[in-house]
Structure formats: C-alpha cells, structure tokens
Amino acid sequence: MTAHPAPGVLRAALAWLDAHREHFRPPPDAADRADPNTAVKPLGELAQLMAAVLRRTDPADPAHATARGLLDHAWAASGDGALFHALASAEPHASYPLELYAGFADAGFRHAAFEDLARVTTGTRSWRAGEREPTRALAVLRAEHRLGLAPDHPVAPVTARTWLGGLPEPWAFEQAAGYAATHHVFHVTAWGARPEALPADLAAYLTAWLPAWLGTCLEERLWDLAGELLAVAACLPEPLHAHAEWRAYAAAQGPDGRFVPHGEAPPAPADDAAEFRLCCHPTLVAAFAAALARGGSGGEGGDPAPRAGATVGGAR
C-alpha cells in the first residue's frame, strides 16, 4: 500500500496558506464594512482550522510550527482581538463576531472587553429569539459554550432541527445540505476534538452514507465539499480511512499547494487577490481534513492524543 496522501496534502496546503498569510489581514475599516463575509470571515476560518491543525499535530512536526505561526499572525492581524470588539460594538446583536471569535478562543486567545460585551448581548431575550437557520443556530450556541456562555442551553434540541439531525434520506443529498451536514458534525465534535460527542445513531448514519456522498463529490470534482466530507470521515468515533478517496482528492491539489473549490486542478501557481479569495477556503479545509486524517491513517507522525478542552499556546 502506498503512503497515505494526507501528510503531503497538509504540508503543501500549509505552505500555500503561509505564503499568502497577508491576504488574511482585514482591511483597516473592516468594522465599518458592509460585508463581513469577505472582510473578516477568512480570518476567523484561519483561526478555527489552524487551532484544529495545532491540536492534531505533534509539536516536533514542522506543520505544527507553521500552524502556530499562522494563528499568531491571525491574532495579531485582529489587533489582538480588538477587531472583534469593534465588530460587536458596531453590530452588537449580530452573531458573527462571536462565531469568528470562538475560533480564536479555541486556540487560547481571549479579549476581555469583547467577552464582557458578549455576556451582555447573549443574555438578552432578543439573542435567544434570534431567527437563525438551524445549522447556524448550532454554530452560535457552540460558540457561546466555548466562552462559557449559555451553559443551561443544551445542543440536542438545536441539533435535532438541522438537516443532518433529521437523519434525512441520503439520496436527497445536495451541496447546500452537504455543507449543513459537515458543519453539524464540526460543531458537535468541536472540530474533531471530541468524536465521542457524536450520538451513536448519527455516527452509524454517517458511516453508512458518507462514502456515497464523498464518492459523488469527488466524481463531480467538488473539492471544497469533498475536503469537508473527508474531515467528517475523520471526526467519526470510528474514523473512515478513505484511502482511495484521499488519493483522488490529493490529485486535485495545485503545484503550489492550493485547492480550487471545484473543477480542474490548478495547473500553475497563482498569486493574485482574486485567486486567494477563490482558494483560501478549500485550501484551509484541505489542511484541516489532512491534519485530522493523519491520526487514523497510519501515516507519518501518528496521532497525538486529542487534548479535549485544552488551550494550546495562547496569547503570548
């Protein structure tokens, strides 16, 4: 059997992310911008997924140091968290500053003034009554939990309302449902840190149907969603190894380490801002999925025991 492709995918994806780290830096007026999806969302995803990479790599592994460097860069780019306080001050009843901040909190970074404000806003009846899509509601509640907020609000009633929580007919899978399903798993398992948090019926459901979803996404060259599904495969209490699927996925990685969201694999390196916006999410996902898969792959490095709940590093 050939070596598992995940370590190579991880190395190359991290190299591309590291080479493009300045693109994650929010514009100076980010807190006033209308569209946080382009201005600050990539920074939050960088923090969330690098926190997971850090947790799943051995400190002696160069990938660990790269993830550490990217996390420190991201925190510094947020003005040591001041960005989230500014965002929350501008839109105090919006949930996205909290969701972004939670990724940093996972990596041990904290901003006291932001958390003070979040304690106030999340304690309102308005916050509880906020109209959110079910998977988004789950994301918000899990973010609150990571900050020690809303401890009396369990996740089960929220997970029951998502697409995946309904144990849907697997042949009804399509892209939007697929992203809802992957994020359900990421939130419930704390981005792979607590596979045991996945209920047994859901684990059995995913063990049965994930291969079919993953296979069709690879056939359709939907690399971004395929990467997320490979990450889900590694989040299961009994991870699916998916060796052949990993080989097909790895073949779509560009020579500079990036993934395009879908379609032809990139033939040559590219360095412009538009290409960054296109590739930053699928490439972050690739690093995340590869770091999770290494543990169950028998590949190099082995699996450092997950340190559930531990803060790793933190603000220095």
Binding site: P170, W171, F173, A208, G215, E219
Partner: peptide
C-alpha cells in the same frame, strides 16, 4: 446491502 444502498444514493445523485 449497504454497498448496494450506497450505489442507489450515488445513482440518484448522478
């Protein structure tokens, strides 16, 4: 049976 059921899912998706 599970492999055939996966095939059904794949066939519908295709």
């Amino acid at each position: 049976p599970v492999d055939l059921a996966r095939g059904f899912v794949r066939a519908v998706r295709r």
